[in-house]
Design a protein around this nucleic acid. Structure first.
Lengths: 336, 336
DNA sequence: GTGAAAGCGCTAACAC
DNA sequence: GTGTTAGCGCTTTCAC
């Protein structure tokens, strides 16, 4: 533990510089010296103090990840994709949860920046308040936006085609005879959610379905709020015949509400959710979803960030990954 | 960014030492100097370089977490509990996945130690190979074991009453008329799984049910392996009438296998899973589980670790949290 | 109360 | 090829 290059140097009978070179594998060291140093290091169980190395190198080989909640399978999968990519480059991930709260997000970013992360991947809670991100980039710390665009801030961003995916879902519902379609979403402060609502409207227009704005239930980013939103729609006399839910929390909440109200899927209420989930095929009936390549989202974010860290300048890039509709029956499709 | 205490000191017209004291809130500084320093820092947007501070303090205020896979809801929930507790103390979590591979776990631990984490929480992949953990503790870096005990290594450990919980599940199945009960588990290298198998045997004994060892399907730690294990049991002529699955991956895999084989739950095959999951109430029928307080597992691990970091010596502690059987119908219970 | 100076463990000029 | 030396940005004696 308390072992330093100096100790190794002494044990190997060379200067600290030589030991450092042998250990670091840079500069030139005689074969003999190198062997002695390496042997001493091995014998004494030396491991480089990365924080000291970071101080001089000006790089911590650590990248920060700020998500709403790592317990959310979406973020967990993205985190996994990210860690896989960056660890392959010797980077490690510092994790922070924002609980979708802008203030907590600020604190998280500050904490990570204080620890001098080489870069940051953030799924920002509020697409409008982004001065902390701008300040970070201005300070020379690369930031990649995950899943959620930010208005008025050109930054590397990795997301899915939210609008197209949502529109697709609505058309799918319309194709199966639905004219009265409700939507359950979390706050529109979340960039991707705002896009999905736009997609909802667009899809309706394309399918020539009238959009009843009162059928768009907007709530918080929790399952309870999803439940509440869906419930409010379902208890109306003129309730919709189909629901489009903007993410898994909303989907889950809506399914609870549907069960609570006692409606049969898909005959009394159809449903299509944004984002696939592991159990979608095991609930009854299986749930039709717009699936997104979540792991890849994290991977691409990692790649983009690594490029920036490696000094790649150039215009910010926006990567849009494609979503895919997976038809399982909950929209009233014929399934075998 | 390139701002240092020296810069602030200069801007405030004081020495670096005074600026550092004012900024760090220690030592004694005149009210006047303090104000000037703080004002300068604010104005120039100074933020302490924590890596430099870490180097001198010998503490990074960072703790390492090594799990099998953050995408696994169990680990995600534990991670969340852990971050909540340690962030409240100003610590941040460095995350690494081992994929339940001993070698990758070693590398992860090495990488985290190199970054001089103040402590480590690890859900170790192999309960028998623990020299890397022992070495870590010996080097003075506190380690808390999460979820999985390690044989022959006395360390702070937070886990659930695996054996009791598993026994309870089996008795529950026996209480509902099952005499031929199979078990699907991942590798016994995983400490908690080994305990659950012991609990399986114990529960059977208590319920005076004969244990057919060939009915214990042991596989890898993936859903596919869970599927495979369950399938192998279900396609037997003398197949069990009930299944106990050792964790969520196994439960999920088993449910797929059950569907594949075309058996009805609970009439043709009953099932009880270890560890609750969000969708358990929405699959049909709802799944009976032995639930564990996963978030608390992470929290307690955090508390234990923080205590050690704060210099609390004393004997290693083992915390066992209680599991709870939640009856939902998949074991053939009468449900309203 | 304040400043000068040493040092955390490492890397990297710069001489030899 | 190797050693000496000067920092990286911070904290912390030790004088004054």
């Amino acid at each position: 533990m308390g072992m330093t290059v100096g100790d190794i140097a002494q044990a190997a009978g060379v200067s600290q510089a030589t030991a450092a070179r042998a250990l670091g594998g840079y500069g030139s060291v005689s074969e003999d010296a190198r062997r002695r140093v390496l042997a001493a290091a091995e014998r004494l169980g030396y491991h480089r103090n990365e924080v000291a190395a970071s101080l001089v190198a000006g790089s911590t080989r650590t990248i920060g990840l700020v998500v709403g909640d790592i317990e959310n399978p979406f973020f967990a999968a993205a985190a996994r994709g990210l860690t896989d990519v960056v660890e392959a480059e010797g980077q490690t991930v510092l994790l922070a949860n924002s609980d979708e709260d802008s203030e907590r997000e600020r604190e998280a970013v500050a904490a990570l920046r204080g620890r001098r992360v080489d870069g940051l991947v953030v799924a920002t809670a509020a697409s409008s308040e982004a001065d902390h991100l701008r300040a970070t980039v201005d300070a020379g710390v690369p930031v990649v936006l995950l899943d959620r665009p930010v208005s008025g801030l050109k930054l590397d961003t990795v997301m899915v085609d939210n609008e197209a995916g949502a529109a697709r879902a609505v058309r799918h519902l319309a194709d199966h005879g639905h004219r009265r379609i409700g939507m359950v979403t979390d706050t529109l402060d979340i960039g991707s959610s705002a896009e999905r609502v736009r997609g909802f409207r667009r899809g309706a227009r394309q399918a020539e379905v009238e959009v009843d704005e009162s059928l768009i239930a907007v709530g918080g980013a929790t399952q309870e709020e999803g439940y509440r939103g869906a419930f409010s729609l379902l208890e109306r006399r003129d309730r919709p015949t189909a629901l489009f839910t903007a993410n898994n929390f909303m989907t889950y909440g809506a399914l609870l509400a549907i069960r609570e109200v006692g409606l049969a899927i898909p005959d009394e209420i159809a449903i299509v959710g944004f984002d696939d989930f592991v159990w979608a095929t095991l609930v009854n009936p299986p749930i039709t979803v717009v699936s997104q390549p979540v792991g890849r989202l994290g991977q691409e974010a990692g790649r983009l960030l690594l490029e920036r860290i490696h000094g790649n300048g150039g215009e910010p890039r926006r990567i849009r990954l494609r979503t895919k509709l997976i038809s399982r029956g909950s929209a009233g499709e014929e399934t075998s």
